[in-house]
Design a binder for these strands. Structure first.
Lengths: 106, 106
DNA sequence: AAACTAAGTTACGAATTGTAAGCAAAAAAA
DNA sequence: TTTTTTTGCTTACAATTCGTAACTTAGTTT
């Protein structure tokens, strides 16, 4: 009858990281600061969703959006310290996938 | 112009792990074998989705479903070796969340 | 016999995604 | 100097996925 007693921080972490595209986005940004169009071209994501996710990660303080006032002006997205701190999670997934995940090609 | 060159195994791992409920389900099963109703009561998941996800994790060989022929018969779900190997990922998320994730209570 | 539990399934409305097109500002090409 | 392209988005809408609730079948306790 009793519900979960899972740590709310952990739950929130899962909410963020499991939201579609988010981990892949963070993974992509581990390579360093990138512009919107670069990210969009690298991943196979639509602009609608990309914008949405970047905003979400921005409000979660995982990603920082900066307007670079050069000519021409451009927008740069980069991980914050909090964002870079997710790297071990990605490493663990990489490790697991290389050891256990098989891709079924015919 | 060029697309991603991300390792397909890693991508598949993300597909599985980022699918809603999956990591929480695996986390729950780290406590050991459990029956359907136990899982359902612990997490706040609907039976429709729970069944769906358990089937998915079963086909991915992360979860094993066993019919225990007792009286009454009951069904047990448990992690496979591949499933238990995901533990470090969960640990990394726990670590990150405890260090960086804040919950905003008013 | 009546009510309950386990392990699902089904139907359906609500929320989330993907697709495609559009847009303003600036820059590069013709 | 017009035309086209690029950037960083937004909007409209269709397709997919999710959650809710009710139902099922078989065994079970009252």
């Amino acid at each position: 009858m009793d519900q979960k007693n899972i740590c709310p921080r952990f739950e929130k972490a899962l909410m963020i990281l499991n939201h579609r595209w988010n981990t892949l986005l963070i993974y992509q940004l581990l390579d360093g600061p990138q512009r919107y169009s670069t990210i969009k071209n690298q991943l196979n994501i639509s602009s609608r969703v990309l914008t949405e996710r970047l905003k979400e990660l921005e409000t979660e303080q995982i990603v920082l959006r900066t307007v670079i006032p050069s000519t021409p002006v451009f927008i740069e997205y980069e991980l914050t310290e909090k964002g870079y701190a997710i790297a071990p999670v990605l490493k663990a997934i990489e490790q697991w996938s290389s050891e256990w995940v098989t891709i079924d090609i015919e």
